[in-house]
Design a binder for these strands. Structure first.
Length: 303
RNA sequence: GCCGAGGUAGCUCAGUUGGUAGAGCAGGGGACUGAAAAUCCCCGUGUCGGCAGUUCAAUUCUGUCCCUCGGCA
């Protein structure tokens, strides 16, 4: 099977990735690989494409998930793979846009076909985590899967819980499963990395938060709260959502919420930059160099 | 003006019964395979408000001055 060609645009939040995708040409269809822009209730706060941008080209996997539903890397990769095949069948160019490095990696390199873990197993592991702490789970992981235990820290509650629930739920270790990772179908990707200096990006991120508030971010959160009052729901854990929720519940002032939102956004952009530095085969472009990106993609498609 | 409470890391504050100090947050670096906008790891010298006194030794005790915040005038 001939590999399907796709373009991926990754980079930190607030660097014009959506606009870059649209500048690549008319036969482009945009596919989201951002873990937060999937939520239907937060189009403003998660910076989903504007209606103007949406009218420029077909967009996929934006704003389709309810606040109380969770997404994960494997599921997102599956959905993206389906979208890519449809777009390819139409003769258009799939352009993947997003900021969640893990989701892109899983799409391109595949993920192990681990079955769903029974709810009872999940719950009991989480209860143990709360009762005994991540270190207790880690000791167990050291016993059953020393190879994986060696690469995660004993304080890492999420990864220790995951390793243990997979072992208890499937009878196989996570290392064992990971060896089976493979992509859904052959892909050939041209990866565009948007380059920015964090110090230059910081004031732009702050300004963007003010824009979001002007566009009605607070009202958006208020409406979401009416639909989904559970503060622990997956959708509320996004940056901006969590801070506005705290304000709406009377825990902090709006000014304070804005401050924390700004800091968290910056810290997130920093983590994204760390991820991008490690990404292989990345073609770096300055933010806003749409012409350079379009030319490079054109040359790649011909070659 | 008087009476209290304070002035310690970029911020909020611990602390030292006298031996020059440490948390959280921020900041920097990193990890990352089914929660990833998540989760986690590493990195802490700062006239301990100024000056003087006591002392082998003061950020710590004493005096004084400056500043901030309350209350009373």
């Amino acid at each position: 099977m001939k590999p399907v060609r796709i373009v991926c645009i990754l980079g930190p939040t607030g660097t014009g990735k959506t606009r870059a995708a649209l500048s690549l040409g008319q036969s482009v269809e945009v596919v989201n690989f951002d873990s937060r822009q999937v939520y239907a209730d937060f189009p403003i706060i998660t910076a989903q494409p504007s209606s103007e941008e949406l009218s420029c080209a077909p967009h996929h996997l934006y704003g389709f998930l309810a606040c109380d539903q969770s997404m994960n890397a494997a599921r997102m990769a599956e959905l993206a793979a389906d979208a890519i095949q449809e777009i390819h069948a139409r003769g258009n160019l799939p352009v993947l846009v997003g900021g969640t490095g893990l989701y892109l990696r899983v799409l391109l390199e595949g993920i192990a076909p681990i079955p769903d873990i029974p709810e009872a197993v999940r719950r009991s592991v989480l209860e143990r985590l709360q009762r005994e702490g991540p270190q207790a789970l880690h000791r167990e992981v050291v016993r059953v899967d020393p190879a994986y235990a060696a690469v995660i820290h004993e304080n890492d509650s999420q990864r220790n819980a995951r390793a243990l629930e997979v072992w208890l739920g499937t009878g196989r270790t996570l290392s064992d499963w990971h060896a089976e990772a493979r992509p859904a179908f052959p892909l050939e990707a041209f990866k565009i990395g948007v380059r920015v200096d964090l110090d230059e990006l910081t004031p732009r991120l702050a300004a963007r938060i003010d824009e979001m508030l002007d566009m009605g971010a607070l009202e958006e959160a208020r409406e979401a709260l009416a639909k989904c009052p559970d503060p622990k729901a997956p959708g509320w854990s996004g940056i901006g959502c969590a801070e506005l929720l705290a304000h709406l519940r009377g825990e902090i002032s709006l000014e304070r919420a804005r401050d924390i939102w700004e800091r968290n956004t910056r810290a997130y952009a920093k983590r994204q930059l760390t991820w991008c530095r490690k990404e292989r085969d990345l073609n770096g472009f300055e933010a806003g160099d749409f012409m350079g990106m379009a030319q490079a993609v054109g040359a790649w498609l011909k070659g």
